[in-house]
């Protein structure tokens, strides 16, 4: 038990380093600015939104039709349900045939769902 916690503690230390590591060049960049080596001269044109050299038209933050919210729903279903299979997979040694049959029924239900989505054109772009 202690060992598992130690492993996660190691990951926590790695997390801290992972945050520090990319900050270093940014801090260096900032330090160069302080020493006057890096320019910072924003003006109206530079801090415009880039849109190929012309002014942007209309707001960007609008209700955006990405036509894939259905896929997002299917993703949630799939991902959540597939996670249930992981414990079963690890425990297959002890449940053997019963476990396999259960898993197959589970996958069959998932697969039927996919086939249904496909037939109902939910996987098409339009």
């Amino acid at each position: 038990m202690d060992n598992v916690l130690e492993q996660y503690a190691h990951l926590g230390i790695l997390l801290i380093f992972a945050a520090i590591f990319p900050s270093l060049p940014l801090i260096a960049s900032w330090a160069f600015f302080k020493f006057g080596l890096r320019p910072r001269m924003p003006n109206a044109v530079k801090s415009d939104t880039y849109e190929c050299g012309v002014e942007t038209e209309g707001p960007t933050w609008v209700q955006f039709n990405f036509r894939y919210y259905l896929v997002a729903l299917i993703f949630v279903l799939f991902d959540v349900e597939v996670i249930f299979l992981f414990p079963l997979a690890v425990a297959l040694d002890s449940v053997v045939v019963t476990g396999m049959v259960a898993a197959l029924i589970f996958i069959a239900v998932l697969f039927l769902g996919l086939v249904y989505e496909w037939r109902r054109q939910a996987l098409e772009w339009r």
Binding site: L15, F17, A19, P22, S29, R38, M41, S47
Partner: peptide, 29 residues
Amino acid sequence: ILKEQLAPRAADKLIFFLPPVLIFIPGVL
């Protein structure tokens, strides 16, 4: 590192500055 870092006027500044650092974390972890 020596290049000017621009931030667009219209950007949501806080959320704009975080990603370059945050995106490293899953990659390193």
